[in-house]
C-alpha cells in the first residue's frame, strides 16, 4: 500500500486548494459543495482507534489523488501563464534579457531560466 501520511494533512491540503480556487471569485470556500462533501466524507470515515480500516484507506487514497489533481492543475496553469501563449517578446524585453536574469516566481525555489543562456 502506498504511504499516505496523516488524513488531517491531506484534508488541510485540499482545503488550501479550495481556498485558491475560490480566491478569484471572492466567494467563501466554505459555501462550496466540494467543501461540504469533503468535510462530511472525512468525518464519516474517521476511525476512533488504531484499526486498519480499508474503507478509510480507500477514501484517503482518493483524497490524496484529488489533492494531487488540484495542486498539479494550479501549478500547470501558473507555468502556462508564465511561459506559454504570450507570443513574441517585445524589443525592450529581448534587449533586457542579457542584462539581468529573470527570476521565476512560479516555483517555490528560485531558478534562473536556462533559456537566458541560449539567448545570450
Amino acid at each position: 500500500m502506498a504511504a499516505l501520511g496523516s488524513p488531517a494533512r491531506t484534508l488541510r491540503g485540499l482545503l488550501r486548494e479550495l481556498r485558491y480556487l475560490n480566491a478569484a471569485t471572492g466567494r467563501p470556500y466554505r459555501d462550496t459543495a466540494a467543501y461540504r462533501y469533503l468535510v462530511k466524507a472525512f468525518r464519516a470515515h474517521r476511525v476512533t482507534s488504531e484499526k486498519l480500516c480499508r474503507a478509510q484507506h480507500e477514501l484517503h487514497f482518493q483524497a490524496a489523488t484529488y489533492l494531487c489533481l488540484l495542486r498539479s492543475i494550479r501549478e500547470h496553469v501558473a507555468l502556462h501563464q508564465e511561459f506559454h501563449g504570450k507570443g513574441e517578446r517585445s524589443v525592450e524585453e529581448s534587449a533586457g534579457l542579457g542584462s539581468k536574469p529573470v527570476v521565476s516566481h512560479v516555483a517555490s525555489r528560485i531558478a534562473v531560466r536556462y533559456a537566458m543562456d541560449c539567448v545570450t
Binding site: 501549478e75 500547470h76 507555468l79 502556462h80 508564465e82 511561459f83 506559454h84 521565476s104 512560479v106 516555483a107 531558478a111 531560466r113 536556462y114 533559456a115
Partner: peptide, 8 residues
C-alpha cells in the same frame, strides 16, 4: 531542470 519544459 528546465522549468518551462520539464516542470510543465
Amino acid at each position: 531542470n528546465v522549468e518551462w519544459a520539464h516542470d510543465y
